[in-house]
Computed example of a mutant assay.
Amino acid sequence: MGLSVRKRGGAAGAGLVALVLAAGAAGCGTEKTVDIDPAAAVAKAAKNTEEITSLNYRMKGEVPGEGQIEGTAAMSMKPLAMSMKMEVAPGGASAPEGGEVEIRLVDQAMFINGGEEAAKEMDGKTWIKFDLAALGAGDELSELGAAGQADKNPASEAGFMADAEGVEEIGTETVDGVETTHYKGTITLADLRESLKDEDQETREARETTLEQYEDLGIDKMTMDMWVDGDERAKQFRVRADAEEGPMDMTITFFDINKPVEVKVPPAAETMDLAEMMNDLQAG
């Protein structure tokens, strides 16, 4: 499976997506959310969700420029660390030949496992290291296709739902054995950007990264669904939108909230440092 880097201005990975990607509830809450106004219930759940410190999540859906992706991730907010494994359909920016992509974000560096194909071109090394401080974190992440989802805090993304319009309660549904209340609403990126001025600096910075990635995709309006559990946090959320390179439809489900997350740096002997390689080329 080969890896490729795309230029800024193209479709950044969403994820989930997007991609990049709202946090959820511990997998044991079963009480129904208090019966209050849908908009107020969603706002409270979004706030509670953004206050979590770590989470595990599953993601599944379609990302513009990438196609179908499916994966799992574990993420710690402070310090920021993330471990993600994704199955990517052939033809995407991150893995043109398709297959599994493994990404780790730790100590201000992103590591991408290119597998056997990458090893053929990197003296047997399977990991590529992107030193975000040396290379420019914002630009590098948005050039990495689906890998650009790695610095997304899904808890922040769930917070977008608090600013959605026309929020309505769909009904009670069970997600991963947990009873939840399903809500739905729509929101524009213009409204999201306007709402940033009322947030504290930490929240603004967390949401700004995701907004920029959505803007790079050419998205201006999204439909969002949130499933709220008995702890009044998001157990699951879904984002749908039309982008320049096709539809986006990503669902993220959360579990193991506020449990320890450990992300290990790959062995140095198996890692090619992109910053060092570029410095060597410039020196040569």
Rank of each mutant, 00 (worst) to 15 (best):
A45P: 04
G13D: 03
K7Y: 09
P38E: 04
G29D: 03
L16R: 01
P38A: 08
A39R: 14
K44I: 08
V20E: 00
G13H: 03
E51T: 15
A46Q: 10
A11S: 01
K47L: 12
V17T: 15
N48A: 11
K47R: 10
K44H: 10
L16A: 10
D35I: 04
T30N: 11
V42W: 02
A46L: 13
A45M: 06
V42N: 04
K47Q: 06
T33Q: 11
A41K: 06
A11C: 00
P38T: 08
V17P: 07
K7S: 03
V42R: 08
L16P: 04
A45T: 04
V17R: 06
A22R: 12
K44G: 04
G15V: 12
G27F: 04
T33V: 15
T30D: 09
V20D: 01
V17D: 09
D37L: 01
A14M: 03
E50K: 15
E51N: 15
V20Q: 01
T30I: 07
A18C: 09
A25W: 02
T33K: 05
K7G: 02
L16H: 05
A26E: 11
A26G: 14
G27D: 08
L19G: 08
G10W: 03
E51V: 13
R8C: 01
G9A: 02
A12F: 02
G15I: 11
A39H: 11
G10M: 00
A12Y: 01
A18N: 06
A22D: 05
A46V: 07
A12E: 00
A43M: 04
K47D: 03
A46N: 09
A25C: 14
T49I: 13
K47G: 01
A18F: 09
V20R: 00
V42T: 03
E31M: 03
K47V: 01
G15E: 05
G27A: 08
G15A: 13
D35T: 06
I36N: 05
A41T: 05
A46I: 12
A46W: 12
K44M: 14
A40V: 13
T33E: 07
L16I: 11
A23R: 11
A39K: 14
E31R: 06
G27I: 14
K32G: 00
G29I: 09
G24H: 12
A43N: 04
K7N: 02
G13V: 08
G29Y: 08
E51W: 15
P38S: 06
V17S: 14
T33G: 06
E50A: 15
A11D: 00
T33H: 11
A26V: 15
A45Q: 03
I36C: 02
K7E: 07
A39Q: 14
A25G: 14
N48V: 09
K47P: 00
T30H: 03
P38V: 05
N48K: 10
G24I: 12
I36L: 12
L19K: 01
A41Y: 05
L19C: 05
L21V: 15
G15D: 07
G24R: 11
G9P: 03
